[in-house]
Design a protein around this nucleic acid. Structure first.
Lengths: 151, 151
DNA sequence: AGAAAAAAAGAGTCTTTTATCTTTATTTAA
DNA sequence: TTAAATAAAGATAAAAGACTCTTTTTTTCT
């Protein structure tokens, strides 16, 4: 659905927004290692998010990426729009150039409900909501050590 | 969700299954032009489907692709499995290597319902169902002439 | 001022998906 | 039995997505 890149973006923002991370800046190396995402690739993604104002950064010693006043209230759809664009919600399931309710493909109506449900979920969910889930222990950003060491 | 290639496959099968096409063989050029899909690319896709027994083909003059006894009862999930594989229903929304209900990402539960709804729809829908929609004029395989000429 | 740390930017690579072009194999019909 | 039609196969290319490596810029600290 959303690209891998966009998933990385969301995970990066949520990482910075976790309670114990909020007060500090975090270098790209640290973030990438913790989330197991290629360092320079994640770097570019976070730079995009800084340009959009979703997170902030400072260069130089003791610099790094960090949350700003806006971060936790950012709806996920804003991140999706920044990285993938909203066009992903309009693509025809069967690969036709155009597909809409006035000229639908045979799967259009079948999946239109799901598609708008997904869209609405991205509209309604904010970064803060994902943070809460993680702090409650209901979900995880990276494969938890518990699972990693159990192998 | 499903790849463009998979969409092409479904459209190709449905094209052959339309009532007025059932009794005849259709060359790849005709199918590709009608559906506006790159000819040789669609050729390879249909060849896959022939190997899977979902459609049939005959070489030589008057040869072409055509439906067989199985075609119209083929559930869409079988086509998806043939082209994309069922792995597409397990990929993590946030790009983690593993994601499941015992080690979910913060979006896992949000979208699990949609994901299984989509899976079930692909299980339940058969090629025949899509054919019916088109014959009823409820949906279209290619951009209809009506729309094309209105531009 | 100079060295070091860190993000930012630039450029290049690898992989996958999508698409094209060419050749081969099979079948039909004249 | 040869020519033509057609699917099948092979090889290559173009585009997009994901990832890497190198250089530059900014900032801090000594």
């Amino acid at each position: 659905m959303i690209s891998k890149t966009c998933g990385y973006a969301i995970r990066g923002i949520v990482f910075l927004s976790l309670e114990q991370n909020k007060s500090t800046k975090h270098g790209i190396l640290e973030i990438a290692e913790d989330l197991q995402i290629p360092q320079h690739f994640l770097g570019k993604i976070l730079q995009d998010l800084v340009r959009r104002g979703i997170i902030s950064s400072i260069k130089g010693p003791h610099g790094g990426f960090f949350v700003n006043a806006k971060t936790k209230d950012t709806p996920l759809i804003e991140v999706v729009e920044a990285i993938d664009g909203l066009g992903i919600f309009k693509k025809c399931f069967l690969g036709r150039e155009e597909c809409s309710s006035i000229n639908p493909c045979p799967l259009h109506d079948e999946f239109d409900g799901c598609r708008s449900a997904i869209f609405k979920t991205f509209e309604n969910l904010k970064i803060a909501d994902l943070v809460t889930k993680i702090e409650n222990g209901d979900s995880y950003l990276s494969l938890s050590n518990d699972f990693a060491t159990e192998i």
